[in-house]
Nucleic acid binder design. Structure first.
Lengths: 95, 95
DNA sequence: GGACTGATTCGACATCTGTCAATATAGATG
DNA sequence: CATCTATATTGACAGATGTCGAATCAGTCC
């Protein structure tokens, strides 16, 4: 694994290294799309904190968002998730 | 994904969220076992730092170590790596 | 336009993290 | 036992991170 690739993958891992973000990612990946309003109730943290975590996930390309009227909907970037999966299925050996 | 599971998986992600640790993990996973002495040369960080990172990987069960004489050898815990791979191949949906 | 709701951004703060130099430990070898 | 090499531990410190309250932005509806 090259230095550059390590930097990139480590960034993805870091984005998923927080329990709240991991559960957010899980919830988003489990559905086609999720409204932010539905992502707040299951957590004990404030609404700005959720927003912050979503921004982190988006900044590394794990999710994307779209505003429709008053609400904002988040979708999972399947390709990114599957890329990670493939990496670990090959046990991090190659690439 | 349950709260407890999120905590556990997030711990694994955090262990892999540093570029140095990720490359260490990659090097260890690519071989049967690796001597610590061979894990230091490719990096620009000090020996105690490598030791620290190896300890982190070990603390979450991603690697195991064994001392033989003067040298210490690290091995990858394949099961842990494959568990992560499976998680992402299912796109974090279930479990 | 004004009020209201949903979501993001800002500023601050306590905690965590990666790093190093210095020190300590484990084993081998003279 | 003294010394040397290979790892690990300790202590310290700058920088990053998660969190919140307050303020701000975006849209809707009257």
């Amino acid at each position: 694994m090259s230095r550059e690739q390590a930097d990139h993958v480590a960034g993805l891992m870091k984005a998923l290294s927080d329990p709240v973000r991991l559960r957010l990612m899980s919830m988003i990946a489990a559905a086609d799309e999720v409204c932010v309003c539905d992502l707040m109730t299951p957590f004990d943290v404030s609404q700005p904190t959720i927003s912050h975590h979503l921004k982190v996930l988006k900044s590394v390309g794990l999710v994307d968002s779209e505003r429709r009227g008053t609400w904002v909907y988040y979708r999972a970037e399947r390709a990114a998730l599957e890329a990670i999966g493939g990496l670990f299925s090959r046990a991090l050996e190659s690439v």
